[in-house]
């Protein structure tokens, strides 16, 4: 079954295609132990697609931020286990790999609004946090360079803010949980820590509530209705007359024209 000419063309010219444009040097990689020869320089994801795999699981954003394509691999003659995201990791000759698109990890359920900003809340929901053996396997496997073990240590010490900051880049791929001797679901614990920090520890932005309330009270209703009734030409004039906040202006900048604030 084939698409139209345009569709075919789009697909073959799409720059993301796993097709090399320069001289092809083929290298062997072993996908779950089976050898495929693929062009060097590809990411693991593109190499698998080149070989004929079509992902249902194990592919997501293709930009290194969603955690769908966690992959573990070894290199020939090297005892070490390595991990990376398939969409970001470039293949090496004789690498042998498998994806871990899912790893079971218990997640606690909670009523967020009832939680207090105290570490005991986390301990209650995730008592296994104290099973951490400080082996640091989680940190070593993290494809985002999160200091996973340090963040768990921070939680144990009751420092939710530090745990939240340390795990901000977590993409919840689950590799940490897959390697954990203490059987911790680190990435779920961190999610809880970040939410408690963001909503209940970090200083809150009062100006948001004021702005929302001003809308609620109809402060802008009249001027907005005027804008909505305006023709394109009149809107264009207003648009071009806008006062632009300078890029390097500080937080205290205020416009000269305050009519519509």
């Amino acid at each position: 079954m084939s698409g139209s000419e345009t569709e075919k063309e789009a697909h073959t010219t799409a720059t993301e295609e796993a097709k090399p444009e320069v001289a092809i040097n083929m290298i062997p990689v072993f996908v779950m132990g089976k050898r495929y020869d693929v062009p060097e320089g590809l990411t693991i994801m593109k190499a698998m697609e080149y070989a004929g795999y079509k992902f249902i699981r194990g592919a997501g954003c293709r930009g290194g931020v969603c955690g769908a394509c966690a992959t573990v691999y070894r290199k020939a003659g090297d005892y070490k286990i390595y991990a990376g995201l398939a969409c970001q990791t470039v293949i090496e000759p004789n690498m042998y790999l498998t994806q871990i698109p899912f790893y079971p990890a218990n997640r606690a359920e909670y009523r967020f609004e009832e939680l207090k900003p105290e570490p005991e809340e986390i301990f209650k929901l995730y008592p296994e946090v104290f099973r951490c053996l400080a082996c640091n396997a989680c940190t070593k496997v993290c494809p985002m360079d999160v200091e996973v073990m340090d963040a768990i240590a921070a939680i144990k010490k009751g420092d939710i803010a530090k745990a939240a900051e340390l795990t901000f880049s977590c993409i919840q791929c689950g590799l940490c949980a897959s390697r954990c001797l203490g059987e911790l679901p680190q990435y779920h614990i961190f999610q809880l820590a970040r939410r408690i920090y963001g909503a209940k520890i970090a200083p809150q932005a009062e100006h948001l509530k004021q702005a929302a309330q001003a809308v609620e009270e109809g402060k802008y209703e009249k001027v907005l209705q005027e804008l909505m009734g305006m023709g394109i030409e009149d809107l264009k004039i207003l648009y071009q007359e806008r006062e632009i906040e300078p890029e390097m202006a500080g937080e205290d900048w205020e416009p000269a024209d305050k009519r519509h604030l």
């Binding site: 901000f168 909503a199 970090a202 200083p203 937080e251």
Partner: peptide, 21 residues
């Protein structure tokens, strides 16, 4: 504005100034 406030209330870690703005 209400959307940002709603997200903050759910624990989003917005980049903030020291006073919470």
């Amino acid at each position: 504005p209400d959307i940002i406030s709603w997200l903050e209330g759910m624990g989003l870690m917005f980049s903030k100034l020291p006073d919470g703005r």
